[in-house]
């Protein structure tokens, strides 16, 4: 299961929420080229900034965490796309040459 994103991430997300925190979950849903994490990889974020799992080799987690905070506030899911042609992705450093789509949803 670890290869598929890990239930540990989901179990942690459930624990954080049970402890009274807002939580959002990000999932890689599509990849092209040499993206470092396969579809199904998960990354959970809490309102206080706790993080678990990953959706890349560490290059886009910052941007995804920001989007996750927004999704926690609005409740609306987001479909993010990062790639080498994407200014923002360059800014956050997806230099591996791949492209990745990440779905961000609120747990709630």
């Amino acid at each position: 299961m670890a290869a598929q994103g890990g239930e540990d991430v989901l179990a942690l997300a459930a624990q954080w929420r049970a402890a009274g925190e807002e939580v959002a979950i990000a999932t890689v849903v599509e990849t092209w080229g040499s993206s470092p994490r396969p579809a199904g990889s998960r990354f959970a974020v809490s309102a206080s900034g706790r993080m678990a799992g990953s959706v890349s080799g560490g290059c886009i987690e910052g941007a995804v965490a920001e989007a996750a905070q927004q999704t926690m506030r609005t409740g609306a899911p987001q479909l993010l796309e990062f790639g080498i042609s994407d200014e923002q992705a360059w800014a956050v450093g997806l230099a591996c040459g791949g492209k990745v789509k990440v779905f961000v949803e609120k747990l709630g």
Binding site: M1, A3, Q4, G5, E7, T27, V29, E30, P38, A39, G40, F103
Partner: peptide, 19 residues
């Protein structure tokens, strides 16, 4: 296939028991 798939706007995320 033990692989995620996209189908008509749906993301299908399989969760098989552990290897």
């Amino acid at each position: 296939a033990d692989q995620p798939a996209l189908q008509e706007g749906w993301f299908l995320h399989p969760h098989n028991p552990p290897l």
